[in-house]
Design a protein around this nucleic acid. Structure first.
Lengths: 339, 339
DNA sequence: CTGAAAGCGCTTACAG
DNA sequence: CTGAAAGCGCTTACAG
């Protein structure tokens, strides 16, 4: 396919391949005249330099990978979050003339592709909880930015949001509205994970208000709309004392609201609901969702920026950057009717 | 970085690089014993063959690109559709041991990267309306599958859904519910585009029912929730005769429903709404959205399959595959109150 | 079964 | 300013 090579251009332009290389890369000294001539031939022959050959010399690919664990899990599958993130990453990469590869990898899969393709770095999304994976990632000795991964290694470059503050803001809002008996819909509370951090923030808000932590009802469930709907039914049947539910994901909140509606529980009159993320469509729901906003697109762009910095300056100091979150007050959380 | 090369392995294992190559690729005849020895050294040295070098020989990269036009447009930006599609593609590609690159390209941008990186093919999502782009894509002489692109070239490999049938099913449902004055929220009706096809289906349903086409009110607007909300307000104020609105996207329908709610127009009692796509969350909305379902994940997987077939058999005949759609009846469309 | 050698398409000192 | 040559890390006939 890619028939025309640097040789063809050199031949046709009556110069050496070194000269062609120079004009292609704008390096070395080339007279305006020969440059011109070479350019013409390149144009005429439709010459495209082979990145593969370049990579072989440079040991650089101008490509980064975005690694997402377990694409098959429905959780990721239906989560608009990831698309927004990837778009942010692609945008940032493009700006730096890098291209991006998408990979989903399982806990036990190899990261050999990073070496094989001479990737310049990668952005790893979400937590790989088991240490072996982490070690394998570190072992490849390439620039890596970890997104939303609570890892306790100060030498790792991490980008997270202020999950604790998010939990705090949501809980505080509910408390200020008079709620005392609050349900929490969260995913698995693994040691120092995203949801554990959010819960910690909730605890802080409770303590600040002088409320006992055991008036909190924790539901450690799968993060999905399906689960939220089912949980709402369960709360209605078995936990009548609850007047508010804080879901650590918008998608869960969407399910909750629907589930309460199924049971004729009015949101927010009878039950307040708060979500987390501020996905674009929750503003248009009925009731519009009160939630904790994080700027996912910015997260993607910032991740690339961090990565590029590491690529340009391999010895740059590791940073743990934490993006702010914000309470977005809409309609789904209101005053406690049983205050 | 990638220090260890085939030479190092050869040296350490006391064989030639040809032999190493053979055991790595399982080609040629190698004695079990040497194979074993080489394997050990590979393991020990942590040797990863360089894809770049391989590509240089093979002119193959085992990588395909997913090309999405205009990532910056909010339309794509907030559309979960694309993520689901990409996941489907990645899954299919992985199955064939291919990796995927993500690119957004503008109408006037170059497709040089396909040649430069020796990509094995690409999936192009959405229509590039102007012919020059299409010509440039064709000019690169690589396997390409066009997704949702209405292109009138029988030699192009295309994968679409049955848009016309989708429009037909939605309209027919509304007509059966007694609606006569129907609004259509669609995007730009470019010559032979996706939305034009859907509209054509709507027309068919109207004609079948003996209804005049001018009782249809077409709103050619931007595809977004924001626009839907605004449009609902406008319909309420200026088009009181309408009793149903068919949006050619779920995201538009979400906005519509919210907009009608703003104006105290009850859906479906006073106004029926139908969407298109069946994004996962619309089932949980209140009211749950009646919509036309397409299987986006399947679409992604099928696209790769078509592409792989082209890669394996370059002369395979071009096909235009059209995936079926399905009416999903939920709550947002009901009997016409003014029938 | 195994190895020496050419060549893929570039880039990069090094001469001139 | 320009070119000859080496080398990046592989694969692939071709000998043996």
């Amino acid at each position: 396919m890619n028939r025309v090579s640097i040789k063809d251009v050199a031949l046709q332009a009556k110069v050496s391949i070194a000269t062609v290389s120079n004009v292609v890369n704008g390096k070395g000294r080339v007279s305006a005249q020969t440059a011109r001539k070479v350019q013409d031939v390149i144009e005429q022959l439709q010459y495209y330099p082979s990145q593969s050959a370049r990579n072989l010399k440079d040991k650089q690919s101008y490509m980064i990978a975005v690694v997402v664990p377990y694409l098959k899990e429905a959780k990721l599958y239906d989560n608009p979050f990831y698309w927004k993130l990837i778009v942010g990453i692609e945008e940032g990469a493009k700006h730096k003339r890098f291209q991006v590869m998408l990979m989903d990898v399982n806990d036990d899969e190899s990261f050999a592709f990073v070496q094989e393709r001479h990737l310049d770095g990668m952005v790893v999304v979400g937590t790989f909880h088991n240490e072996p994976v982490l070690e394998r990632i570190s072992a490849i000795q390439k620039p890596v930015v970890f997104l939303d991964s609570y890892l306790e290694h100060p030498y790792l470059h991490q980008l997270l949001i202020d999950d604790e503050q998010g939990g705090y803001l949501g809980a505080k809002h509910l408390i200020e509205l008079g709620h005392r008996q609050i349900g929490i819909m969260c995913g698995l509370l693994v040691n120092g994970g995203v949801h554990a951090a959010r819960l910690k923030g909730v605890h802080t808000a409770m303590k600040e208000a002088g409320l006992p932590l055991d008036s909190l009802q924790i539901f450690e469930v799968h993060t999905s709309a399906e689960t939220g709907r089912f949980l709402a039914h369960r709360i209605n049947d078995q936990f009548p004392q609850l007047t508010a539910t804080f879901s650590f994901s918008d998608i869960g909140a969407v399910g909750l609201i629907r589930g309460f509606h199924d049971k004729k529980v009015s949101v927010p009159a009878d039950m307040s609901v708060i979500g987390f993320d501020d996905m674009h469509y929750v503003e248009y729901m009925n009731p519009a969702l009160t939630t904790i906003r994080q700027d996912v697109h910015m997260k993607g762009k910032l991740a690339v920026e961090m990565l590029m910095e590491m690529i340009d300056h391999p010895s740059v100091e590791a940073r743990q950057i934490r993006l702010p979150v914000e309470l977005i007050t809409r309609e789904s959380a209101g005053p406690c009717s049983r205050a």
